[in-house]
Computed example of a mutant assay.
Amino acid sequence: MGRADLPVVHELEKALFPEDAWSTELLNGELDEQPRTRHYVVAVESDGEIVGYAGLAAAGGQADVQTIGVRADRRRSGVGALLLTELLDEAARRGSEAVFLEVRADNDAARRLYHRFGFDEVGVRRRYYQPANVDAVVMCRQLRERPPMGFNKEAL
């Protein structure tokens, strides 16, 4: 995703998340961190139309899915799965051990997608999404085993 994509992405953002859409300023700030700690992509149809977008933050061995949005008429067509695959691949390229995300507790379709991709529910953030007071389910997918910590007494 580049700055030229922001007008379309922001319109999609407002349509998909009307109560808590990210501002253009926030989206610009995310792109300011690309590629250092961010990776943002768009899904584009053959005619050049943007039908989805996604973003990842990654640093210190951990990655966080910042956002995934798919135009309503393109849901259940594989666009979300392609975007999530790209984010997971990027997290692995950056050496992340795990990928975390928050998803609205009432977004069953997204939760099913994340479960299909191996994410586990690890917590709840009460009333995270405002102003609707909707809980966020925190999910995590391990990408690789953590190296052992401490020492192995058999090796002494």
Rank of each mutant, 00 (worst) to 15 (best):
E49L: 14
R76V: 03
G118F: 06
F119W: 04
D64V: 09
E30A: 09
K153E: 15
R144W: 11
L6Y: 03
A91K: 10
G55W: 03
A21G: 00
L26W: 03
D108Q: 07
S46L: 09
A21P: 01
G52I: 11
L56M: 06
Q130D: 07
I50S: 04
L56K: 10
P35G: 14
R74W: 15
G55P: 07
A155E: 13
G48D: 04
A15L: 11
E30D: 06
K153L: 15
D5S: 10
A4W: 10
H10N: 11
V9D: 09
W22D: 01
V44G: 09
A81S: 15
Q34R: 13
A92K: 14
D108E: 14
D120P: 06
D47M: 07
A110G: 08
D73M: 09
V122G: 08
G69K: 03
G60L: 08
V122R: 02
T24R: 03
L31Y: 11
H115G: 07
E30M: 10
G78W: 10
R76Y: 08
C140P: 00
D89E: 15
A15F: 07
R74E: 13
P131A: 00
E90A: 12
E19F: 03
Q34V: 15
P147W: 12
T37M: 08
E19L: 01
S96V: 12
H115A: 13
M139R: 03
E86Q: 15
L16T: 01
Y53G: 05
D5R: 08
G150Y: 04
R126G: 01
F119E: 00
E33V: 05
A43P: 01
E25M: 09
G48M: 10
Y129K: 06
V8P: 02
V137L: 05
H39C: 14
T37C: 13
F17D: 02
P18S: 01
A54F: 05
L26C: 00
A21H: 03
E97H: 14
E45Y: 05
R146C: 09
H39G: 07
E11Y: 05
R111C: 08
L56A: 08
